[in-house]
């Protein structure tokens, strides 16, 4: 299960989204969940206790949008519906879907 091509994301109100693993790895948080010694890594199911179904749906849409356009240029912007934009902003912050690098560990 853990090395399946797809993983399942579950919103707090119980919606399940089956996503291509490679696409979902855009999110640093999901990557860490799947890599570590966590239950998520074994079952391939990630539960998000703070993300609503419609918001997670948009996040999944972004995963595929990003995956489809990964080496493209002149990509059209993705439209975000106004009613969920704040929740989406927080979800993006939580999932590490912003553009910033990691500070390298000095060790």
């Amino acid at each position: 299960m853990s090395d399946s091509k797809y993983i399942t994301l579950i919103s707090y109100d119980g919606f399940e989204f089956v996503v291509l693993r490679e696409a979902a790895l855009v999110s640093e948080t999901i990557g860490a969940m799947l890599r570590g010694p966590f239950r998520e890594a074994q079952t391939g199911r990630c539960e998000f206790g703070e993300i609503r179904g419609p918001v997670l749906e948009k996040v999944v849409e972004y995963f595929h949008y990003h995956y489809a356009n990964r080496n493209q240029t002149d990509v059209p912007d993705m439209d975000i519906p106004v009613d969920i934009c704040l929740e989406l902003l927080m979800a993006a912050d939580f999932l590490g879907l912003d553009s910033k690098p990691q500070m390298r560990d000095i060790s």
Partner: peptide, 29 residues
Amino acid sequence: DVSYREQDDNRLLNPKGARSLFEYALKTL
């Protein structure tokens, strides 16, 4: 002193590529 994640290649280093979801949500807001 920063390391790029593989997925950053696109969002940070591809000038005309897809932006981050954070930016899209910010734009709408």
